[in-house]
């Protein structure tokens, strides 16, 4: 028992160190490759040790191949635009499914869930046609529009609302508060963890999306990060600029990574998952 108490934590630390080393290896390599002067395939280029004089040439080339400032801006607009609209639509729909009783509710709920499976990449051509009909082709709004409703988010919000005891609302209702005031002042604050969970899912998904933006966007002024990155990841005839690719990947993930590192503790801890817990 005694032994257990001292050894077990040490073992745990050792095990987790080993795991995180394995997990970090691709990033370490990316970091090394991005500063390595000779990045096309010298025998030792897989090495994770800094055995070279670092160069910024790869970053320079990556930055030259596209307007990264613009890509960051566009991607941020897309991600925030999608999330902003989604938070409204899923809160409203979640409330309707959780608290209102109306004919056809079951049917509508199933109809919502159908969307879970039908991501735009699976339906490129019909969705693109719709985007053109709406006049949104080659615009950031066209990248966002298909995601404005979210079955997943609606489901999550419905769960969260169902998990909140009705006493609060009833008290507010007796005081004569209208439904929207109840949602805004009572339900949403209590459902914050579910909102945070959904925000993580939404932001990471759309920050990293490639195929759909590639289809919708033509104008270089509307390019997003992943399309910019594709300049060096999607070459066709066998040449690979590993160093530039590594530098570009770091540039793409930097903003999210920095945000995560900065808010990691608050983020994970405040995020008590009552939306799921109920």
């Amino acid at each position: 028992m005694r032994l257990d108490r001292h050894i077990a934590p040490a073992l745990l630390v050792a095990a987790m160190t080993a795991v995180s080393t394995v997990w970090a290896a691709p990033f370490l390599w990316t970091l090394m490759a991005s500063f390595r002067p000779d990045s096309f395939g010298a025998a030792g280029m897989a090495s994770l040790l800094p055995d070279f004089a670092p160069t910024l040439a790869n970053f320079r080339l990556a930055l030259e191949s596209g307007d990264f400032g613009l890509y960051y801006l566009n991607t941020t607009i897309v991600v925030i635009g999608i999330l902003g609209v989604q938070l409204v639509t899923i809160s409203l729909a979640g409330y309707a499914f959780a608290r209102l009783r109306f004919p056809g509710r079951d049917f509508l709920f199933y109809a919502f869930l159908l969307q879970l499976m039908l991501v735009p990449p699976a339906l490129i051509v019909p969705n693109l046609r719709t985007i053109v009909d709406l006049g949104l082709y080659d615009s950031l709004a066209g990248v966002m529009a298909p995601y404005f409703a979210s079955a997943f988010g609606t489901f999550l919000m419905r769960q969260a609302f169902l998990g909140i005891p009705r006493d609060f609302e009833e008290a507010a209702a007796i005081d004569g508060a209208p439904w929207w005031a109840i949602v805004w002042h009572v339900l949403l604050p209590m459902a914050r963890p579910a909102l945070v969970a959904f925000a993580i899912v939404s932001v990471t998904a759309h920050w990293n999306e490639f195929l759909w933006p590639l289809m919708v966007i033509n104008d270089p002024a509307n390019h997003t990060l992943t399309i910019g990155l594709a300049t060096f990841t999607r070459g066709a005839e066998g040449a690979k600029e590993w160093g530039v690719l590594a530098a570009g990947t770091l540039l793409v993930m930097a903003p999210l990574a920095i945000t995560f590192v900065a808010f990691q503790r608050r983020f994970v801890e405040s995020f008590v998952f009552s939306g799921i817990k109920g």
Binding site: L61, S65, F232, R234, G235, A236, E237, G238, E241
Partner: peptide
């Protein structure tokens, strides 16, 4: 246009 070999060609 596609980029047949590498980013340099896109530029």
């Amino acid at each position: 246009f596609p980029v047949p070999v590498e980013g340099k060609l896109a530029r």
